[in-house]
Each structure stands twice: as structure tokens, then as C-alpha cells.
Simulated assay, not measured.
Amino acid sequence: MSLTSHLQELKRKHQTLAEEVEQAQRAPGVDDLAISALKKQKLRLKEEIERLS
């Protein structure tokens, strides 16, 4: 896998997580711990994207 395609995949995953976080924050039954875990995953992806860019 080339660096460019790897970065594109990481960005796609980051966007997917961003959407999941947004949906979870709107849902009344989702606990804060689950939202926090999603945000941490999203942050790790963002850091990896920045590191590789």
C-alpha cells in the first residue's frame, strides 16, 4: 500500500468516526464513555495522518 492510499484510507476512517461521534452525541441513550472512546480513536487517526503528512 502506497503512502498516498494509506493516508486516504486513514482520512476516510477519520471522517467515518467523526460522523459516528456526531450521531452518538445526538442519540439520547449513548453514554459519555462510548462517545469518549470514539473521540480518542478519532484523535489517534488525526495524529497518525499528521505524522505521515
Results as ranks from 00 to 15, higher is better:
residue 16 T to D: 07
residue 48 E to M: 10
residue 21 V to H: 01
residue 18 A to Q: 15
residue 46 K to E: 12
residue 12 R to A: 09
residue 10 L to I: 06
residue 26 R to K: 14
residue 15 Q to I: 06
residue 33 L to K: 13
residue 14 H to I: 01
residue 51 R to E: 10
residue 38 L to D: 01
residue 18 A to T: 13
residue 44 R to Q: 15
residue 26 R to N: 11
residue 17 L to K: 03
residue 6 H to K: 14
residue 7 L to N: 02
residue 27 A to N: 09
residue 9 E to A: 07
residue 52 L to C: 02
residue 40 K to E: 13
residue 31 D to F: 01
residue 19 E to P: 00
residue 14 H to P: 00
residue 41 Q to A: 08
residue 11 K to E: 15
residue 26 R to G: 08
residue 48 E to N: 05
residue 31 D to Y: 00
residue 24 A to R: 02
residue 5 S to G: 00
residue 43 L to T: 09
residue 16 T to N: 08
residue 19 E to D: 13
residue 7 L to A: 02
residue 29 G to Y: 07
residue 39 K to C: 07
residue 33 L to S: 11
residue 13 K to T: 03
residue 40 K to W: 01
residue 26 R to Q: 14
residue 13 K to S: 04
residue 28 P to D: 13
residue 22 E to Q: 12
residue 41 Q to I: 00
residue 53 S to D: 05
residue 1 M to E: 10
residue 18 A to K: 14
residue 43 L to P: 00
residue 8 Q to P: 00
residue 13 K to H: 06
residue 47 E to I: 04
residue 35 I to M: 06
residue 23 Q to A: 15
residue 23 Q to F: 03
residue 30 V to K: 07
residue 22 E to A: 11
residue 28 P to F: 09
residue 14 H to R: 13
residue 11 K to V: 04
residue 7 L to R: 08
residue 23 Q to T: 09
residue 35 I to T: 01
residue 26 R to P: 00
residue 3 L to K: 13
residue 5 S to M: 10
residue 11 K to D: 04
residue 5 S to R: 11
residue 43 L to D: 12
residue 49 I to P: 02
residue 32 D to S: 15
residue 53 S to R: 11
residue 40 K to D: 13
residue 29 G to M: 09
residue 13 K to W: 00
residue 23 Q to I: 08
residue 40 K to S: 08
residue 50 E to C: 04
residue 20 E to T: 04
residue 2 S to P: 11
residue 44 R to H: 12
residue 15 Q to N: 11
residue 7 L to T: 06
residue 5 S to W: 02
residue 26 R to D: 13
residue 1 M to Y: 08
residue 51 R to C: 01
residue 37 A to I: 13
residue 21 V to N: 04
residue 31 D to M: 02
residue 39 K to T: 04
residue 40 K to C: 03
residue 24 A to M: 07
residue 42 K to V: 02
residue 18 A to N: 10
residue 10 L to T: 06
residue 20 E to H: 05
residue 7 L to S: 01
residue 26 R to M: 10
residue 22 E to H: 11
residue 17 L to I: 05
residue 9 E to L: 08
residue 15 Q to W: 03
residue 21 V to W: 07
residue 49 I to L: 05
residue 33 L to A: 14
residue 32 D to V: 12
residue 12 R to C: 00
residue 43 L to I: 09
residue 42 K to Y: 04
residue 45 L to R: 05
residue 29 G to W: 07
residue 37 A to P: 00
residue 26 R to V: 03
residue 28 P to T: 09
residue 39 K to E: 15
residue 42 K to G: 00
residue 22 E to C: 07
residue 23 Q to R: 14
residue 25 Q to C: 09
residue 10 L to Q: 07
residue 4 T to N: 13
residue 11 K to L: 05
residue 11 K to M: 11
residue 18 A to L: 11
residue 27 A to R: 06
residue 47 E to V: 04
residue 28 P to C: 05
residue 53 S to Y: 01
residue 24 A to Y: 01
residue 26 R to T: 04
